[in-house]
Design a protein around this nucleic acid. Sequence first.
DNA 1: TCCTTTTTAGAGTATATACTCTAAAAAGTC
DNA 2: GACTTTTTAGAGTATATACTCTAAAAAGGA
Lengths: 226, 226
Amino acid sequence: MKTKDKIVLTSLELFNERGERNVSTNHIAAHMGMSPGNLYYHFRNKSDIIYEIFKNYELMVDTYLHVPRDRAIHMHDLIAYLDAVFNGLWAYRFLHQDLEHLLASDDRLQEEYRQFTLRCLASIQSIISAMEDSGIYRPMSEQQRKSKALNTWLIVTNWMTYLKTIHSNEDEQEALTRKSIQHGVYLILDYVMPYLYEDKRELAMELQEKYRFDGIAPLAQEKIAS
Amino acid sequence: MKTKDKIVLTSLELFNERGERNVSTNHIAAHMGMSPGNLYYHFRNKSDIIYEIFKNYELMVDTYLHVPRDRAIHMHDLIAYLDAVFNGLWAYRFLHQDLEHLLASDDRLQEEYRQFTLRCLASIQSIISAMEDSGIYRPMSEQQRKSKALNTWLIVTNWMTYLKTIHSNEDEQEALTRKSIQHGVYLILDYVMPYLYEDKRELAMELQEKYRFDGIAPLAQEKIAS
DNA sequence: TCCTTTTTAGAGTATATACTCTAAAAAGTC
DNA sequence: GACTTTTTAGAGTATATACTCTAAAAAGGA
């Protein structure tokens, strides 16, 4: 793997772990056992590293956030979207920690993130539309679709942040999140429920149950379930 | 007014304007025409200033987020809550910009913010409950109320952040926000709509219309309206 | 092998930040 | 008016950060 890509990967890892603010370019270099000079040979500045990470993130999201072309959309697709989105958010969680600052210090990122958001909102609206067409969602107005897309976006992009503010740092991070990320899916399904046709609700609620996470220890929960 | 309070106010102002990360204690002192030494006579460190600001915020929210005791709750109460909440978020908007970092650097704040959140979620649940009792919301399960409260919280606390990421900095801040904050109310009303009894929907939609903001220039919008 | 280009190390720099220390001024008290 | 306490100024410090510069090593090509 190229050094440049390694820098991007290491930076992402450190940013996620400690927060972008607490990770200096010197840290990144040290962590890779390389000199700062070398790092700056590959990237003009810290912002450029972040920009590169964003482009990866953007590419990932743009890849999976599409309505299937060759077949009707299904409830399971919704779950698949949500799973993918939440995992993506987790994998790039530092991005949303202080997005405003990142955007403020890089005009290019600011504009491209803006476009990215608008594109995502449009995609969500298309997905809603497709769900209407396939008889899962009840029909709604353009304006309602817009609001639904935006509300969904707000819930989704804030879920990770919420978790990190509410859970004391004692909880081991990895154990905490893998499970509790799932609850995000649960919440969105709850949000979506009233817009489903009655005959789809039962399936939806069944699927939803699998994603509930009450914050009790995962093991205990599994015991109860079995 | 006491110097200590003035420091808190000035800090809040600067934090909101430029972001906490970009405002040093030296900046605050300079902006007040006082020496850094003096500032540190009143506060042991920057975290303590932030903590003090948080306590003000907390007090404010705790004051207005209550179910009325002497009468039944009304649709208009919901609007009043939302108005208050969004204005509060605007007035302390720096707090949510990089909350995670603020919490990570102050254990006391971390724990108290956690408690604050849980208290708010409980309050929202109480409000939902009261709305059920007064025949506005349809009855729902405890679990559903929980999800609704959490989703509402996620939308509300992320709305300001969203606005700041999507609007290019060209838009003048003040004009932008006063109007677009309102759209947050619109969104929550959209979220809430399906849970209302049919006979309340018309009123709700009427109220909601007043809060719509499409992002077109406020003046143009007012022209169309008149 | 000689030459060119790419990659690397590592020392160094300018600047900012959070915070300290000492002594003087101001305010309050009797 | 003597005193004690509170508030203030302002110079200073240790540390970190983003980033630069030069020269050497490594890689690649003919």
